[in-house]
Design a protein around this nucleic acid. Structure first.
Lengths: 233, 233
DNA sequence: TCAAAAGTGTTCACCGTACACCCATGG
DNA sequence: CCATGGGTGTACGGTGAACACTTTTGA
């Protein structure tokens, strides 16, 4: 550090990242959030978002990726910077500013052992307990962002397995947007976007007839985006 | 500080805010950005966004407000957190992470003396010089955000005087969105929103006939928003 | 009376939405 | 053969986009 620079010494503060991790439970067909039970004071034993401190050689994105990897064992998780939280007394121990992230993962993909190790648990939005510090505020903002993002970018697929049925996709949107959708209009809309590949394979678990499986075709989406296409649901 | 807390010492870094200040020049009918000539090394004499460091008793919003007040003499400026920039080497002097803001001001309102004192200048987007550090990246992201925001929130009025003509409003949108708009469709759309008050007064400077002045009716907008109305242009 | 900007209405294509019946299959 | 979920088409109203002429008035 250059302590004799004309940069002020009093501006240094701890920098943290906190992640709002969303997952979709295919079985229960509900949106869930992954929370951890805090193992340090203050608020030991209370629920909080998964977080961590910024390392000296990391960007905040790096730090968020690391935090996500630590808890889930996964890499290349979809995530997005949400907002900086910086109330002076938000962390009672020491002045800390936190950069909140939202992250989307496939709920069946991650490492169960790590989750246990961190005393983490998936909560439906209804069962979500109150969180420490300003984490509830982060969560609420994160949910709004997710609702907005999912209507304008094809990120919903991050929450589903690679192959999914039209019904699963619709339920996902209904859960996130907290509305009911008409299945005829929904599949018409989705198909008109031309960014899904309809497979020959069927998922026979849900009905006798079986329902076709689809895959998100990222290449097709990118190509269409280059040509001015905008995803919109 | 509690240095014997289990919070890591290495995470402390300088925290800055940088403001992308937009203004609309009514006379030239162009969008401009306010830049300052840097008076300290490194890059002394080069152009940059107006910035400052986070004070120990401030939120980042407070810091951005302070920075904006310092340069313009104005309070209650519309501003919005944009993004955190945290590349490890983004500031060559010392590890600094910066929270970028966009701000909208009426270009005729602010304090000319302060602008001179800081060697600040308004630039059209065409004339904008290259900026120091990662400020160009901030600027580009800020412009995208402005383009998006102005279509979904009634913030364009922040850039105009209290009373404005339909033509000024249209030119403002054309400038920000970098498109041409049809004046019949534009005024139809705006009027259908029912958030402007048409005054009896006319602005006679622009033509012999004179054009009606309008005011943004914030109360009406808030009332409609409460009832589920969404601004959209 | 003319130049210059202001103001205004109609048509058409497309999209979003509402709505109900037949299909395929395993038990 | 029947119960269960899967899959599909049509009609209508509303919105966005294209487009041109008349009005006002100061010089």
């Amino acid at each position: 550090m250059f302590m004799n620079s004309n940069y002020p010494a009093e501006s240094r503060a701890l920098i943290a990242v906190d992640c709002i991790i969303f997952g979709f439970d295919e079985h229960e067909e509900v949106l869930k959030v992954l929370l951890i039970k805090r193992d340090m004071t203050p608020h030991k034993g209370d629920w909080s978002l998964m977080g961590g401190f910024l390392g000296i050689d990391e960007t905040v994105d790096d730090a968020a990726s690391r935090v996500l990897h630590t808890l889930t064992g996964l890499d290349n998780i979809y995530m997005e910077q949400l907002h900086v939280f910086s109330e002076v007394a938000r962390d009672p121990v020491e002045r800390t500013i936190s950069v909140a992230y939202i992250a989307l993962i496939n709920i069946n993909d991650h490492d169960q052992k790590l989750i246990q190790q961190y005393s983490a648990r998936w909560f439906t939005l209804e069962d979500k307990p109150d969180l420490i510090f300003d984490h509830d505020e982060m969560f609420n903002l994160g949910l709004s962002r997710l609702q907005h993002r999912v209507s304008t970018k094809p990120i919903g697929f991050e929450l589903l397995p690679e192959k999914f049925t039209m019904r699963q996709l619709q339920k996902l949107y209904e859960e996130i947007l907290a509305t009911d959708l008409d299945k005829r209009n929904f599949s018409k809309k989705i198909n008109s976007l031309e960014i899904l590949e309809k497979l020959d394979e069927k998922d026979k678990r849900s009905s006798r007839k079986g329902s076709y499986l689809f895959k998100f075709d990222e290449e097709k989406y990118k190509e269409k985006s280059r040509q001015g296409f905008h995803f919109k649901i």
